[in-house]
């Protein structure tokens, strides 16, 4: 048994009030330490609140901000994941999650996927990160940090696991919605997340740690329900939905080895195959190579063939003419990507 006690800080941050949230973080770090935790996880934007809009620039911190240093110093003897608005030297704003260890900011993950649809408007206010790396930790295993929407993209958990993470940590501010009766927990959002996390844990044969906030920002309510899923895909611990508090859960890190020996999915991954096909997709989308599934007659970079008609200019290169691809192109995609 390689026991690790994980503390979930399932809190309701005060919107835009960095000082109050910082004080709460310091309290909970201390409480987690007293409770014997080795890893403490705070939710997405736990230091600032979520629905910031134009407040984002006002609560942003550079990585050399003394408040962040103070938090790092308070995490001595622990591994802590905290989240805030990070301002880069060239004044871009990121939703960041940082791993604090041994009094230092050990690793920073900038949220890669910024949802800007439905009730979300993140891309308006934030810049997306460009780097996804697993990080070694004092816990003796690699950690993979991700923020909320990052886990709605399959490649995120896969890349983190292949890069050496054995614990995938997702920090979230997930707004609860879709009060469906059909859902196992009465909330469509929660059901979707629970499915994702179990699937990722199983497919990456890793622990998945999910810390989601509670409380209310403006119209939206956050549902909590923080969880840790074992590498076999089963929940080890599920925190209550909607309740504010620090929740402790014990996991056996040796489970990762057992699962990976029994089910060597990661061993059998084909990163060179995936990389090659992704490079092909990128070239096709950029119009640098014929799209193998586009309609016959579609220009490179487009997947629908414009209809040729007298007097109607089509295409972007010279006169309208025959298809630029082989006639045996695949079936129509029937819609835009």
């Amino acid at each position: 048994m390689q026991p690790l006690r994980i503390a979930f800080a399932q809190i309701a941050p005060r919107l835009g009030d960095l000082d109050a949230n910082l004080a709460r973080h310091l309290e909970l770090l201390e409480e987690a330490r007293r409770g014997g935790a080795g890893l403490v996880v705070f939710p997405e934007l736990g230091l600032t609140g979520y629905q910031l809009q134009d407040l984002a620039a006002e609560v942003a911190m550079r990585l050399d901000d003394p408040r962040l240093s103070r938090l790092a110093a308070a995490s001595a003897g622990l591994s802590a994941v905290v989240s805030f608005v990070e301002e880069s030297g060239d004044h871009r704003l990121f939703i960041a999650a940082a791993l604090l260890e041994e009094g230092e900011v050990r690793h920073v993950h900038r949220k890669l996927y910024l949802p800007t649809y439905g009730l979300f408007d993140e891309r308006r206010f934030f810049s997306p990160g460009d780097i996804l790396r697993a990080v070694p930790s004092r816990l003796g295993v690699g950690l993979g940090l991700a923020v909320c929407e990052d886990f709605w993209h399959l490649s995120t958990p896969q890349l983190l696991a292949l890069d050496g993470a054995q614990i995938l940590i997702n920090v979230s501010s997930s707004p609860g919605r879709d009060l469906a009766m059909a859902s196992e927990v009465g909330l469509g959002t929660a059901s979707s997340w629970r499915t994702l996390m179990r699937t990722y844990a199983q497919l990456t044969t890793s622990f998945v740690v999910f810390c989601n906030r509670v409380g209310v920002d403006e119209s939206i309510s956050f549902w909590g329900g923080s969880e840790v899923i074992g590498p076999g895909g089963g929940a080890v611990f599920s925190a209550p939905m909607f309740d504010d508090g620090l929740f402790l859960a014990d996991v056996d890190l040796a489970e990762v080895r057992r699962e990976r020996i029994a089910l060597p999915l990661l061993r059998d991954e084909r990163p060179e195959l995936v990389g090659r096909e992704w490079r092909r997709l990128v070239a096709e989308r950029a119009g640098l190579a014929p799209d193998s599934t586009a309609e016959a007659g579609a220009k490179d970079g487009l997947d629908v063939a414009a209809e040729s008609a007298p007097g109607r200019p089509i295409g972007f290169r010279g006169a309208p003419g025959p298809a630029t691809r082989h006639p045996a192109a695949g079936p129509s995609k029937g819609g835009a990507r």
Binding site: L15, L179, A180, M181, G186, V214, V216, D217, S221
Partner: peptide, 22 residues
Amino acid sequence: LAIDTDVARRVIAEFIRGQLRQ
């Protein structure tokens, strides 16, 4: 149109308290 009324009441109670507190 059926919803889980327990979840609805929990969310709404938090919403009301949150609006007043803020």
